[in-house]
Design a binder for these strands. Structure first.
Lengths: 207, 207, 207, 207
DNA sequence: AATGAATGAGGGTTCATTCAT
DNA sequence: CATGAATGAACCCTCATTCAT
């Protein structure tokens, strides 16, 4: 139910320190992965940019792939933290949906580089670890499923509840599309136009 | 307008042979990239699986990235070749659209591994070369734009022609989604269900 | 004025260690370059003979050419260190010249293999780096120019000061000649005979 | 006594053809060796520049080093052919010497790139083959020895005949010096100045 | 807890040479 | 005689990971 995270073992005991060092390393890794991708980034570079030595890096992780996992998880974390507030609003499911979609797309625009990391590099995770990341992705998708169901219940959305999950995936993917088809879309639309048009198209499916 | 391909220089002069050897190399590379990804596949493995020596491999390409480009191009080629026939049918734009979407999704299902290669590995191409691949992707997307416009003209599709391009991208992405969200979708839907539901959702946007 | 050396970057920080390892590597490389030349010597051989791994070698240099530069520089260093003491003597310029020539030729004989490395391999250095080596060579030549000028001033040498530089080059080259024409000269002369004859010939030019 | 050349075996019988093809290959190789050195020049490049295929190249030689030998020999040949005419003049040994030195230095200037090939690349020849090249070099040196002896005999040159050989080597080396110390000498002297000064210095040794 | 020197397997690429056509 | 495709040993260099200090 809650958010199961993979435990990455550390040689260091002090939990505070672990958190601090991992934040440093994630920040360093994100910018490096954005710049050159996971494979072309070296562990040395990550340690250097994080401000400590390669030896220290390996006190807090066990392999380079651990860093990738921490990065993916942090990105999902940020995505979720940015998305959740919009759901607090007390409105109809339909309005909630529109707000959430808009927010999602704005987040996608804002975090485009990070989103790309997940899309392009997650495959390099060991199969086990990958599951945790995909799980998290599914949970975020489930948020939209919930909003849709709320709308169906309060009558503001007209659709078969069985299709809520698919619809939720569609929404997520249309958001991500702004990131990984940006090379084509940005030639034609501003973010605002993109949001407006997609919301309008989605609404035409639930009336 | 037409389909510009990047010329990959070869030390070998015989064009027939170049084509033959490159086909062998592409087939080998595709299966290896599927199995272990571009970065973890070695040029030696590609040569061995293709049935010739590493020296021979380099008679037909200049770098490992050339192999990746050839692979991406071949995948797009196959995708296009599988998609085009469905457009020959003499029907309304709307029916043509439905046929094309169905075919696209079936192709995505059939070529899922290859599609994943493009999505996950194309980023490793040199910027110059990447353009060729994205261009090709855009051209395939344009096919759906054409079908939509045909439907608008013959009155079978009701939508603002200005939105045809976006809609075409949406369709492509919903097809690709069957590939890269398969881990979530396949738990809930068969391909057939997926096709039916998505077509029905898309049709609700153009009536 | 002073002796500008090219800074070869190292991944290792400890300056002491850098010096120590580079000395090991230079000693190994010199003997290998003598034995088989720069091109036929592999970096692995250098590392092995130096007593460490190939990975360690590359912690202290950036490319095989860096080793060649270090070798050339060390050879020039030794040459200079062997030559300088003879100039401390308090005598006339003429006597000083004779002493220096004798010493130079003795050094050439002693360091023949190393001198050959510079002559035959320096061309493999990148243009930038080659300049440092040639510069050093010119500085050593300038030593003889100074001695000649001292002799002109104190009246013990009779020559146009304008020709001191050319004369200095001649002396250097006659010294090197003992190295790279050894195959012919050693058949006819001992080192001592060679020195005597050449000094006598040179003196006949400055009286 | 005469000029023993190394026989390089060829698979082809027709002597005319052998000579023609080898001339082509030498011309190609010389320009490539000048441009990039022996080691960085590939046999493919030599064949291509010579105007035939790599297969054909190996019909006329047995190894890349054979090409280097042919090149060295051709250079010596040209050097000799340019030098000999000056000896035909009917004058005193002293005048003959001056003429020969001048001619030698002019040739060195003219053929500087080729001379460099011999100096820097000959060491890559197999020991056996190297002997032929050094032999040739000694023969050319002997020319000057002859001129000196003629001068001693006709009284125009005053020196101990035992030193003629050394003197001849000195002259050769001072000529080569114009080539391999050009980076320093050309800053100070024109060829003409260099010739004048060196001749004057040499003459001061034989009066 | 932090450091950073050491390791060495492994990767991409080159190129002299061969030999079937 | 000429061609040029095929070979594979060998080269330079990288980098994730370890471990003594």
């Amino acid at each position: 139910m809650t958010d199961p995270k993979k435990k990455i073992p550390s040689l260091v005991k002090d939990q505070r320190l672990i958190q601090k060092r991992r934040e440093q390393m994630i920040e360093a890794a994100v910018s490096l992965f954005i710049e050159k991708g996971f494979h072309k980034t070296t562990t040395r570079e990550i340690a250097a940019k994080a401000g400590f030595s390669i030896g220290t890096l390996y006190e807090y992780i066990q392999s380079k792939e651990d860093v990738l996992y921490l990065v993916c998880d942090a990105i999902h974390q940020e995505l979720e933290e940015r998305l959740m507030p919009v759901l607090k609003e007390e409105t109809s499911g339909r309005e909630s949906l529109v707000l959430a979609i808009r927010r999602l797309f704005e987040i996608m625009d804002h975090m485009q580089d990070q989103i790309l990391i997940i899309y392009q590099e997650a495959k390099s995770l060991p199969a086990d670890t990958l599951k945790y990341v995909l799980n998290r992705e599914e949970q975020i998708t489930a948020i939209f499923e919930q909003v849709l169901k709320k709308g169906i219940e309060d009558g503001s959305i007209d659709m078969n509840p069985k299709e809520a999950k698919l619809m939720a995936h569609n929404i997520m993917v249309l958001g991500e599309m702004w990131v990984f088809r940006r090379w084509a879309l940005a030639k034609r639309f501003t973010l605002e136009e993109y949001i407006e048009k997609q919301i309008s198209l989605i609404l035409s499916q639930i009336s």
